[in-house]
C-alpha cells in the first residue's frame, strides 16, 4: 500500500489525514477493526486507549512503518515521528542527529541549530547523545521532528518514560512548538490528563474501533481546577474501564 501518491487529490479537501476502513490483524488477532479517521490541518488529536488497543499500530500505519493493512490511508508527504524512546544515534552529535536524513548544507545546519534553540538545547549541539538526560534526549528527538517542518507530527507516547516533573515541562514545550508551527498532531498516549491538556479532540480506541470521540472545548490555560476538566477526565476514564470514583 502506498501512502504517498504523486499528486494527492485530498489537498483540495483540506485534510491532513484521511484513513478509511483501516483493518489490521496479526494472525487471528484484529488490532484495527474498520477504523476511520479524518484530521484537519493543524488539528491536535489525542488517541487514548488501553495497552493493546491498537493505538500505536494506527500511528505506525500513518508513519509508513506498518504497510500491511487493508483500507485506504492518505497522509502528508512531510511528516515526522517522535517515539517513546529518543532513538538518537549514539555515535552522531546532537546536531547531526537533528539533521539526520537531510542534505548536510550550511543552511540545514543553521536550521538545526535554530530548532535546537527552540527546545533550549543549542548549547549541547556538539555533545554525544549519551551525555544527555532522558528529558534532554527527548527534546532532541522533538527537534529532529520539528526541523523537518512537518505537516503531520506523530507522537507515540513521547513522554511515557519521563519523570512527572520533566513531563510537565515537556507539555509546555510541545504546546509552544505546536502553536508556533501548527502541524497536525496525532498524540498516542495512555495519560488522560496529558490528552485533555494538549488536544483539540480526544479519541478513545477500544478493541480496534473508536469508542468515544470527544472534542475538548476548554478555555486556555487548561487546568485541573476547571470543573469541566474533571468531568471530561471522569468520562474518559470510565470509557477506558477505570473506575474513577
Amino acid at each position: 500500500m502506498r501512502h504517498e501518491p504523486a499528486q494527492s487529490p485530498h489537498v483540495l479537501r483540506g485534510l491532513a489525514v484521511e484513513a478509511r476502513n483501516v483493518t489490521k490483524a496479526y494472525g487471528d488477532r484484529v488490532v484495527l477493526n474498520d477504523f476511520s479517521l479524518d484530521m484537519r490541518p493543524s488539528e491536535f488529536v489525542a488517541l487514548l486507549g488501553r495497552s493493546g488497543s491498537g493505538k500505536s499500530t494506527f500511528l505506525r500505519v500513518l508513519g509508513a512503518l506498518d504497510g500491511d493493512v487493508e483500507g485506504r490511508v492518505w497522509v502528508p508527504r512531510r511528516r515526522a515521528i517522535v517515539f517513546q524512546e529518543p532513538r538518537l544515534m549514539p555515535w552522531l552529535s546532537v546536531l547531526r542527529n537533528v539533521t539526520l536524513g537531510l542534505p548536510q548544507t550550511r543552511a540545514v545546519k543553521d536550521h538545526g541549530l535554530t530548532t535546537l534553540a527552540e527546545v533550549g538545547l543549542e548549547s549541547r549541539a556538539d555533545a554525544w547523545p549519551r551525555t544527555l538526560s532522558g528529558g534532554e534526549a527527548q527534546r532532541v528527538a522533538l527537534a529532529r521532528a520539528m526541523v523537518r517542518d512537518p505537516h503531520l507530527l506523530l507522537l507515540d507516547e513521547p513522554f511515557g518514560a519521563l519523570d512527572a516533573l520533566t513531563r510537565i515541562r515537556m507539555h509546555g514545550l510541545l504546546r509552544a512548538l505546536y502553536q508556533r508551527h501548527r502541524p497536525a498532531v496525532l498524540l498516542v498516549t495512555h495519560d488522560v490528563d496529558e490528552a485533555i491538556l494538549l488536544a483539540d479532540r480526544i479519541l478513545v480506541l477500544t478493541d480496534g474501533r473508536i469508542s468515544l470521540n470527544a472534542p475538548v472545548d476548554l478555555a486556555a490555560p487548561r487546568g485541573l481546577s476547571d470543573p469541566r476538566f474533571g468531568a471530561l477526565r471522569r468520562r474518559l476514564l470510565t470509557e477506558l474501564g477505570v473506575d474513577a470514583a
Binding site: G63, A64, L65, A80, I81, F83, E85, R87, M89, L100, G101, L102, R144, R148
Partner: peptide, 13 residues
Amino acid sequence: ASLVEAARTFGVG
C-alpha cells in the same frame, strides 16, 4: 533495528 527504523522514517537513504 529501532535505530534503523527511526533513521528510515527521517528519510535516510
